[in-house]
Structure formats: structure tokens, C-alpha cells
């Protein structure tokens, strides 16, 4: 009987301690309710701001297309139609712009979407469960080695001067911050690119336990890839490149 009493007393003590903890925690929770309400208000505000910025982006992109067309038409207008040399120069410029990735292009291709593991927990999950710059660079190399002729990451066109690297939890591309999910668009031989991705051992492994990154690859027939969006930075991109003389070129040997 005494034993029973003791057990009951110990149980009651434990229950009371636990109740105390819960009560204390609840008190803290109630106190932080105000900040939680503020949090919800901040989320709502950020969502509205994002929608507004997305609308502005759309307008800016449309404006750019119209201005670019206006400039191209104007050049043809001011040039002498009879002068073949001048027209050739404009055609050459148009061709170089296409080669350099400065124009919007369309064609059959694929959209690859990669994202961190769902509900990634930095304490429990391996670091490979989040997407790093190296994962993106690897994927781009894979696509180019399989015939991709134009590639973009989250609608940022990959050109000769593109540098891709991690800054905290975001990836910087063309000096612009991008966040997951990373949508990589590539125009090229669809089947070849898709087969290469489906059979790639690294991405197959990353989709399995314990990494479980999210990965999808969808062929699209009329895929549109943006032109390089910051042509005004080209001067900086080639700041240290001096044109080589014929003599210097001749001296190159391999």
C-alpha cells in the first residue's frame, strides 16, 4: 500500500513538473503571439510586394522588346538602302548578337527543375540535399556536352561572361541573385539531352535517400529562352581583353 502511495506521489510530482513546463512554455507562446501576428502581417505584405514587382518586371520586359525593335528598325531606316556594305554590316551585327546570346530565341528543348530536399533540416539532412552552384554548373556542362545551343537559369541567359557561384543560400548568376527552385531551360536535341539527364549517375544518386533533392525534366517543343538581359555590362565583361595583333595571333602555337 505504501508502495502504491509512493508511486502515485512520484507520478503526481512528475505530472506537475511537466504541467509547469507546459504552462511556462504556453505563457511564452502567448507573449510571442503578438510577434506571430506581426509575422503573418509581414508575410502578407511581402506577398503583395512580390506580386507588384512581378507586374513591374513584365512591363519592363515588354518595354525592352519594343525599344530593341525600335532601335533595330531605326538603324535600317537611317542606313542607305542602296549601300550593300552598310546593310551587310547590320546583318553581321544581328548575327553576332545571336551568337553572343543577346537575342531571345525559340526552339525544341527541355526544362529541368531542381530544388532542395523538401523540408530540408540542416541538423538532420546531409549538405548534398540542398542545391549548390556546382550542381547547376554540372547540369549546364551536361546539357552543353549533349548539344544544347542556348541555356538559361531562372530565365538568365548563360553567355561567355556568366559566372555562377553560391552566396549563402542563394546562387548568383550574371550578378543576379537566384533562389530555388532552379529552372534550367535548354534548346537543343531534346531526346539526347533528356537521355543524358535520365542516365546521369550523379543526379540519380542525389534523388535517392538520404539526399532526396527534387528533380524533374520536361521536354517542351516551343521553348523560349531570353536574351542576355544586361547588355550594358558587356563593356565591363570584356574590360581586360585587348584585341590581339596578327603577329601575336601567328605566334600562338599548339
Amino acid at each position: 500500500m505504501t508502495n502504491n502511495k509512493k508511486i502515485i506521489q512520484i507520478s503526481m510530482t512528475l505530472i506537475l513538473i511537466l504541467s509547469g513546463l507546459i504552462l511556462g512554455s504556453h505563457y511564452v507562446q502567448v507573449r510571442s503571439e503578438t510577434s506571430s501576428t506581426l509575422n503573418l502581417a509581414a508575410i502578407q505584405e511581402a506577398r503583395l510586394e512580390l506580386v507588384e514587382l512581378q507586374n513591374v518586371r513584365e512591363e519592363l520586359e515588354n518595354d525592352y522588346k519594343n525599344l530593341r525593335k525600335e532601335l533595330n528598325d531605326l538603324w535600317f531606316e537611317v542606313f542607305d538602302e542602296e549601300d550593300a556594305q552598310q546593310l551587310e554590316l547590320l546583318d553581321e551585327l544581328t548575327r553576332i548578337r545571336k551568337i553572343a546570346g543577346l537575342t531571345e530565341v525559340k526552339g525544341g528543348g527541355i526544362i529541368v527543375t531542381i530544388n532542395d530536399k523538401e523540408n530540408y533540416d540542416p541538423l538532420a539532412d546531409p549538405i548534398e540535399s540542398i542545391i549548390h552552384d556546382q550542381n547547376i554548373i554540372y547540369l549546364i556542362d551536361l546539357l552543353i556536352n549533349n548539344g544544347a545551343q542556348a541555356v538559361s537559369i531562372n530565365d538568365l541567359r548563360i553567355v561567355n561572361s556568366s559566372h555562377i557561384f553560391c552566396i549563402g543560400t542563394t546562387v548568383l548568376c550574371n550578378n543576379q541573385r537566384t533562389i530555388p527552385p532552379y529552372e534550367i531551360k535548354a534548346i537543343g536535341p531534346q531526346e539526347q539531352m533528356k537521355s543524358a539527364l535520365d542516365a546521369d549517375p550523379i543526379y540519380l544518386k542525389l534523388q535517392e535517400e538520404p539526399y532526396q533533392i527534387r528533380f524533374s525534366c520536361v521536354p517542351v517543343n516551343d521553348l523560349i529562352i531570353n536574351g542576355y538581359e544586361t547588355p550594358d555590362t558587356i563593356t565591363k565583361d570584356i574590360e581586360y581583353l585587348k584585341i590581339a595583333t596578327d603577329q601575336e595571333i601567328q605566334n600562338i602555337s599548339y
Binding site: I43, R47, L50, R57, Y64, L67, Q176, D232
Partner: peptide, 30 residues
């Protein structure tokens, strides 16, 4: 909630930066 807010704020920052750059680009073209 806290994670959602950080993600949204990152997104807003990213859009704002890019929009500013696109605006400059359009001005130069104009």
C-alpha cells in the same frame, strides 16, 4: 511562418534588384 517570410523576403529582394537593373537597361536603350 518564419521560414516562409525569409524565403519571401529573399524573393522580393531578388526581384527588386533585377527590376532596377532592367530599368537602367531600358533607359540606356532609350
Amino acid at each position: 511562418e518564419s521560414r516562409d517570410l525569409t524565403e519571401l523576403q529573399n524573393n522580393v529582394r531578388s526581384y527588386a534588384e533585377k527590376n532596377a537593373e532592367l530599368n537602367d537597361r531600358n533607359k540606356a536603350l532609350y
